[in-house]
Design a protein around this nucleic acid. Structure first.
Lengths: 340, 340
DNA sequence: CCGAAATTCCAAAGCGCTTTGACAACTAAC
DNA sequence: GTTAGTTGTCAAAGCGCTTTGGAATTTCGG
């Protein structure tokens, strides 16, 4: 069933039917009702490709998903996508997801943009000096960045959380509790959030004249396995840490396993603060020792990003603005006074 | 840059350029090279919407993602998507993801199908008597189901794992170890895999004249929180279980927490077997007591499904076939002889 | 009852691509 | 030197929709 058939069926022109459907005023109410009823009955749906071709709008936002045989799927990705979707469904938007080799993200992004398949782009997992940013800026299609890119002039639209502030605050809390030996379980080194979190820790320590040695920092993709492994190494240092900063509750899961297996007590022998993206399947309050966290909902960020991106597309407005969310520092049982 | 401009630039007709690009034989090799070089230089990319309109093919597979404010994002979803993507990227396919209210999945699927935006459909999270199946069958667009639908004639293309067999085998192992009091931590009651797994357990028990009482079964969405909660209740039964079957490692995570907090030892006081979807961030071998599991890689299933779906679309072939994967039963330390 | 304004509808062009059918131009064959 | 067969190219139609400019119909003041 297409427009032509539908209009023939109704004895109207395609124009009139199209207008009736798209809410134009110059069509009789009775006629519109008749059209709407016919649509109900026949189950007619306009062909999106044709619509796209004619209007230039597709009702879709595009994103590339890095993927490869060895590539870890990221728990955080799904949660974020759910947030995006939650908002998108309200506007009848959909996503075009282009899987891409992690080495060719820029190319994939470029292809996606000029394929004419999407109205706007979204990118995440930002790195320092991210090469996708110059591309996006040159593309004249709305886009929004989740995170920022360290080392790039922040003149692009983004939504980020205050990673540096979060870890600065967390570190300060631990300092106030008397800790002096810190370790950082961080995400992959090149990622922007990892850079900033490290910065937060370092600057809080610096205020007390402390430093964060290289062997007290671990950069890795955020799985519990890696968390455990890194923590085991930390515990074997000549002067093992009493305070741990951790970039994800998933990492914390593994780290805590290592702590427990070493016969140490969380919140007594070792204090730990993790960043909590509010993953529904991994709640820090449910850990056997509830976790002190810096919290910011990933899903909420998704909702907000979709909201702004769709808004931009719909009213053809200017590109979205910049937004920086504060995190909450929530104290639970995994932090305590430094052992003496 | 569009075809017309490109062809004018080259002094050729649109036809010739189009043919050169799409590998048709009736074009001079020299001309083809010239065209290809121009494409390189200008960065020309055909407009997908137009291509879609002209050919009827979009190079995309569609899926609906249930989403709502209260809806849990599913760890398994991301992992599976990664698998799909891994294969899709090899064929320059992309996904169109339509977020949808969980109450309107059928409608969303329908809209997606007749929007003309996708070449094939994929559905998962099958339920008993799934209402999407009749729709899909009537739609004359290739589709593939992950899982099956209990109670529906299995005359549709699917890829499923042998859930019943997996839990039958697991239960038998526990029986052989002398266990007699079983509990099942299962996924949501209406989902097909939950139905079949339960069936597997029940029939293995029946062979020994045992039954699975209602208060020894728990159906819930698969988060560690739910796992813990359900396990706590099991442990308060008049005759607490010594053997636990568990539909996911995420559930197991919570369940084990409850076991530990009750002062019981996994693998001694309580034996547990979980189904392992091979989530990269939650490996059963890394649990403090490594988990005995029934294993089947969710990602591998994604790869395979994409492979078959894309194959079908590309050669316009018949709809994909049916496939049933066996699971592996891997014994680790979480299972042991029943305590006496 | 007439002319102008307002209302309702339509024919046709265009979005960017693929594909059909035809046409030159050039070879090979008789 | 004509005919038949290739080869490389093109003009034009069509995919299903939106939208422009104009025509037909209705409404209404005078």
């Amino acid at each position: 069933m297409n427009l032509k058939q539908l209009s023939e069926m109704l004895g109207l022109s395609q124009t009139t039917v199209s207008r009736a459907l798209n809410g134009y005023p110059e069509v009789n109410e009775a006629t519109r009702e008749r059209v709407l009823r016919a649509v109900q009955e026949t189950g007619y749906r306009p062909n999106k490709a044709a619509q796209r071709l004619a209007t230039g709008k597709a009702g879709s936002i595009g994103l590339v998903m890095p993927t490869a045989p060895g590539h870890y799927s990221d728990v955080h990705f799904g949660e974020f996508l759910t947030g995006l979707g939650e908002e998108a469904v309200r506007h009848d938007f959909h996503f075009v997801i282009m899987p891409a080799d992690p080495d060719d993200e820029v190319g994939a992004l470029r292809r996606l943009a000029i394929s004419g398949n999407v109205d706007a782009l979204f990118v995440a997992y930002m790195r320092g000096h991210d090469p996708r940013l110059p591309l996006l800026k040159s593309l004249s299609i709305p886009f929004l960045v989740h995170g920022r890119s360290f080392g790039t002039e922040p003149d692009y639209p983004y939504l980020d959380i205050d990673n540096e502030g979060a870890f600065y605050d967390a570190t300060r809390l631990l300092l106030q509790l008397g800790h002096t030996r810190f370790c950082l379980l961080n995400g992959p080194e090149h990622l922007d959030f990892a850079i900033r979190r490290r910065k937060g820790v370092v600057s809080a320590l610096a205020e007390r004249g402390l430093t964060l040695p290289d062997d007290c920092t671990s950069h890795m993709s955020m799985t519990d396995e890696h968390g455990q492994f890194a923590m085991e190494r930390f515990l074997q240092l000549a002067e093992p840490p009493t305070a741990i900063l951790c970039s994800s509750t998933v990492l914390a899961l593994g780290a805590i396993r290592a702590v427990t297996q070493a016969g140490l007590k969380l919140g007594e022998d070792i204090s730990l603060i993790a960043h909590d993206d509010v993953l529904p399947h991994l709640k820090p309050e449910n850990f056997s020792v509830p976790l002190t966290t810096t919290r910011s909902s990933l899903r909420a960020a998704g909702v907000r990003i979709a909201e702004r991106l769709i808004g931009t597309v719909k009213q053809d407005g200017p590109f979205p603005e910049q937004e920086l969310w504060k995190t909450e520092l929530i104290v639970r049982a995994s932090t305590g006074a430094a052992p003496r």
